[in-house]
Write a protein that binds this DNA or RNA. Structure first.
Lengths: 190, 190, 190, 190
DNA sequence: GTGTAATCGAGACGGTACGTCCAGTCTTACA
DNA sequence: TGTAAGACTGGACGTACCGTCTCGATTACAC
């Protein structure tokens, strides 16, 4: 019974080293300064190996995110805890992350990647529109059911607004004033 | 009494031609394809003139926005009309713009610029955090006063969420479902 | 047993085209007008290929000479003919060459290159101090042995003076008077 | 009755400062690195002032030589001393100068200027073909008259060879062996 | 074992854009 | 009018990457 695979197989070690090198360089110097040649050199890998497997710089970065190589473990709402508490935790934790220079730079890099490259946009949207939006949505639904949140809450729209609010902080230059977390929750309360 | 100004003054004509050329090229081919050399050539200007006055490509783009060279005339809430109507108009018009490929590409370019360049971030934030936020805030305030909106509305936070909601659409890959405009307004209603 | 050679080998064709293009441009417009970008364009070669293999414009010119790409085939003393006749031929031919505008411009370019660039100086000296000086020296030695020239002739010094005399003509502005060839030979006669 | 000269007269101070600055920069970094903008800045002079009075970089350098701003005081044969002694002094002193790195660099700069620029060639030839050649010629003539040198010495040709011998040392890369001074004199002896 | 085939590292290739430097000109205010 | 200052268009410089290509070497499967 013949196998369908001929020739030397793809090197998993190289792939891992490429993702690790991308992560390091991205955290060091940001998305714009990241070059494919530098990734290849840092990973000890031929340049063609990168071009063979990824169509663009942005998609390598996106794969780093998907593979959890980049420290982007998003706060996922815990289905056991009350909805309001979940949302408060997500809002607060997100804000804390964006106050850390490393994480801020990283998120900005991802935003730049998504804004300029179609492939990266698709992959990143799969993450944010998938994992994050789903967990937010479920927390909102639980809140509505339990009466913690307004009964007429437009779930989809609110989830979009919450994620957008995070995003807006990335491209803002100044610091935010006031207790945005509680203000946001007030909006959702009955 | 000697004047403090020596030497040939900066050419306003060159500056205008640079901004116009930047606008044209940006709308044609997008932010990533935009090169400083191409701007200089299209403007009939020496390359050094660009480097003399702007620190980066992104900041030229930002100045285009500030100077209203780019067609970004934001919908400013009309202080004569009812607040709710103003907000509805702003939300609807913003969504319509982002449905137009040209405008979408342009906004994405600006987002990429803001995400990757400090100078551009400062300039763009002055616009969005200035003109747009201010008009949204005043509309929200009028709405609270007139009773059209909830009395306990956290103005600042809501303005951030509304702008963020717009921004999130830029980096999303898929289409939005539902009547987001009315859903958003429902959130703010008493 | 692994070979020590890795990567794509240097393209001999590109090297040849670069030297040919340098020759053409040099004969057309002179050394000062010669630019690396123009060579690269004329040779249909990337600019980096030039910088990869040559440290300076002058050393490319020098390599042209070494490779006999430039029409510098020096008059080499024929060991069969009498020494005096050889020297007379070399002196006369050299003078005739420097009377031709093309050859004069070319020699001036080489002199400028040697005067301003260390690499070029080394390479050109290998030519003049090698081929030309060697042939002159052997002619002088034959002349001394056969009695055509003074027995006490300081060979090295005379060779230097003869080459120097040629060189001096390059940087002189006015025309030379008198029969310099015969005068020079008279100096060397017994 | 008004003078025939209108407007502000040429500033002699500026001219002096320009020549001084040219000398300093030339001795520092060589002819190729010398730029008109740098001269103007170092001299505290407007760039236009340079272009108004000199046609090229090389001609400024040439004027430095003519004005003895550059330390090129050539050994002029002393008419009181015996001819042979004069020539020996000139040959030795010239060789000593070319052994000093500063002087060598300076002479090379002048050679490069003469080889690449018509104006500089004319001006420098006026110096070497004027002052130096004249003094050499008169020393040779005295030597012939006094019997110190060969009676049939071709004065012009020998002067050319002596200057050329010096010149050749400029563009040579290696060191010279042997006692070239005495060898040269031997050639001229009866 | 002995092909056959695809991947690997390395690195040169033709190009594009960068940001700097300088050339030579032009336009101010001042002397 | 000459001068210092300094902005202007234009263009070469040398560097950094891009995406492609061409090597020898490696590593699997198929025969």
């Amino acid at each position: 019974m013949p196998s369908g695979v001929r020739g030397r197989p793809r090197s998993e070690g190289s792939r891992q080293r490429i993702l690790a090198a991308t992560r390091d360089l991205l955290l060091e110097s940001g998305y714009d300064q990241l070059s494919i040649a530098a990734i290849a050199d840092a990973a000890g890998v031929g340049r063609q190996t990168l071009y063979r497997w990824w169509p663009s710089k942005a998609s390598i970065v996106a794969e780093c995110v998907i593979e959890n190589v980049l420290p982007l473990r998003t706060v996922v709402a815990d289905p056991e805890r009350p909805a309001l508490e979940c949302l408060r935790a997500w809002l607060g934790e997100s804000r804390r992350r964006l106050a850390m220079p490393d994480q801020l730079a990283l998120f900005r890099a991802l935003t730049a990647a998504a804004a300029s490259d179609e492939t990266a946009r698709l992959r990143l949207d799969a993450l944010f529109g998938g994992a994050i939006r789903h967990s937010l949505r479920s927390a909102l639904e639980r809140g509505v059911e339990s009466g913690e949140l307004r009964a007429d809450l437009p779930i989809e729209t609110v989830a979009d607004l919450l994620i957008g609010g995070m995003l807006y902080r990335l491209v803002r230059a100044d610091e935010e004033a006031g207790d945005a977390v509680e203000d946001t929750l007030k909006l959702l309360a009955p």
